[in-house]
């Protein structure tokens, strides 16, 4: 599986690929206790990956951009960004998620002395009142 994640906001875009991303989880966050289809559901994606570095210092680590995004206050319009995630396998785009008004719900990153690289997890969600703008495509050639 290959992944490509692009976050577009006011700053220069944040781009991650399969070198950094290890797992992508899409969840339509619906209440578990509903008797019929709920109106109140969220659309979120969790992305797990590695914090890589370039020994020459030339590569801009895109995960820093994710950490900074998670800190943007709600009065700043830049807290909502457009996120596009592609899952590619055998020259096919299996999934193409587009989340145009995504905000960060969870962000954490870990570094330790045992593993050579650190790890991160970001959980983003579409602004709930604009759920219909989320697009899920797939099944076409790269």
């Amino acid at each position: 599986m290959a992944y490509k994640m692009t976050v577009t906001g006011l700053d220069s875009p944040i781009a991650l690929n399969e070198k950094a991303i290890t797992r992508v989880v899409f969840d339509s966050e619906t209440p578990k206790d509903s008797n019929a289809r709920a109106t109140d559901y969220g659309l979120g994606v969790k992305v797990y990956g590695k914090i890589l570095f370039d020994t020459l210092g030339g590569m801009d680590d895109p995960t820093i951009g994710l950490a900074k995004w998670s800190q943007v206050p709600s009065y700043n319009g830049d807290c909502y960004r457009n996120v596009e995630i592609n899952v590619v396998s055998a020259s096919q785009v299996v999934r193409n998620f587009v989340i145009p008004q995504a905000f960060v719900v969870e962000y954490n990153e870990s570094l330790d002395v045992e593993t050579g690289v650190g790890e991160f997890c970001i959980h983003i969600r579409q602004k709930k009142d604009e759920n219909e703008k989320v697009a899920i495509h797939g099944g076409f050639g790269v």
């Binding site: 998670s70 800190q71 206050p73 709600s74 909502y80 990153e109 969600r125 009142d129």
Partner: peptide, 24 residues
């Protein structure tokens, strides 16, 4: 001395839109 660090942005998980209540 230091073995590991963990940086967490604390956000309420049930927010419908970006919260004003962010912690680090």
């Amino acid at each position: 001395c230091i073995v590991s660090t963990k940086f967490i942005t604390d956000i309420p998980k049930n927010s419908d839109a970006r919260t004003a209540d962010v912690g680090t």
